[in-house]
């Protein structure tokens, strides 16, 4: 019995010496010190021995167990230190660049449109769209601007080639998104609450603040009892969402042929805070929206009774918003599509 024990001990120490990692060590522990190991079995079987034998073998078995446990602990400590050292040896240069994930960007105009649509979406305005090539009727006449109306000069127009002498109706690139108002009101009855984003075109020489193609967002709400106060509330909320709590908002009288009363909405200048600078042309204010109560003539034309219904409409240039926000000083950057510009946003 004692011999077996000694053999076991020497085999165990021998194998422990060959253990090189923590997994092997755990296997070794189970083999020699686990519940089913020979050593533990030996200790359990002591009861079957005589008292004298029991004392001798028992004492020795306990010594062997203690010695194995001590060695196990030392070995474990050693292995753990070794692991730490080797990990340290293999540590990374964490300052090396990570592999960049290919990711594009939405165009700044798209981002701005999404933002505008989402603010108005929250106020119950649904997005609608209309054609970019329009009949003269929708762009002008239906909006209370018959032929030779002086306000048409506010909209330098790109006309399409058409043979009007043979009876073709005059066609143009829409100069504003307002024709969508008419198309919506022709199709649906109040309550109406829509916004219409899209491209518009002007016959215009380009410079840092003028583009011949740009984006607008049109808005229209028609129902019973819609008032100028509602217009103010809606657009006030919009400017607050877009430009923040601290901006001042100014509503002043302005003229657009398709609204009456007409409104211009301005915010205090982001650059100077209202004291006057180059950005705001020394006025302290920056115009961001044209608006007003839908003109009774416009309602009548689409067969909505202005004595029963009223509504407000508004329109805004889109590029101007990020230009103000990010200090972009040239609108031509938007559709010049230089990636060095687009990737900044």
């Amino acid at each position: 019995m004692l011999n077996q024990l000694e053999e076991l001990a020497s085999k165990a120490f021998d194998e422990l010496g060959k253990v090189t990692n923590l997994e092997e060590l755990e296997a070794w522990r189970i083999r020699y010190l686990g519940k089913k190991s020979d050593l533990i079995q030996t200790l359990r079987s002591l009861a079957t021995l005589s008292l004298k034998e029991r004392r001798v073998v028992g004492a020795r078995a306990n010594e062997v167990k203690k010695a194995l446990e001590t060695s196990l602990a030392e070995k474990k400590k050693g292995l753990e230190q070794g692991l730490a050292l080797s990990l340290q040896r293999e540590s990374l240069d964490v300052t090396l660049p990570g592999e960049s994930v290919l990711l594009g960007h939405l165009h700044l105009t798209t981002q701005t449109l999404d933002e505008i649509c989402s603010i108005f979406g929250g106020m119950g305005f649904q997005v609608v769209e209309g054609p970019e090539v329009e009949w003269e009727y929708y762009n002008f006449e239906a909006l209370n601007m018959p032929a030779d109306h002086p306000a048409r000069d506010m909209f330098a127009t790109l006309w399409m080639d058409s043979d009007t002498k043979t009876g073709d109706r005059p066609m143009l690139l829409r100069t504003h998104t307002s024709p969508v108002q008419i198309r919506v009101m022709e199709k649906s009855r109040p309550p109406i609450r829509v916004i219409a984003p899209g491209r518009v075109y002007r016959y215009e020489a380009t410079d840092a603040t003028h583009e011949w193609m740009f984006y607008q967002v049109e808005g229209l709400a028609v129902d019973k009892n819609i008032t100028l106060a509602d217009l103010k509330g809606t657009l006030f909320e919009f400017t607050r969402c877009l430009f923040g709590e601290e901006r001042k908002v100014r509503f002043r009288c302005d003229y657009f042929p398709f609204v009456e009363p007409g409104v211009e909405v301005a915010i205090d200048c982001l650059a100077c805070g209202g004291t006057g600078c180059r950005l705001c042309g020394n006025s302290g204010w920056i115009e961001i929206l044209g608006a007003g109560m839908v003109h009774p003539e416009v309602l009548r034309r689409v067969d909505i009774d202005p004595e029963v219904y009223s509504g407000f409409a508004f329109g805004m240039g889109v590029e101007r918003i990020p230009m103000l926000r990010y200090g972009i000083d040239d609108i031509r950057l938007f559709y010049g599509n230089d990636l060095r510009f687009l990737k900044q946003f």
């Binding site: 106020m123 100028l228 106060a229 509602d230």
Partner: peptide, 13 residues
């Protein structure tokens, strides 16, 4: 225009 109040649309959607 400043003396006109600001209200939110109350009409049904």
């Amino acid at each position: 225009y400043d003396s006109i109040p600001t209200t939110m649309l109350s009409a049904p959607l």
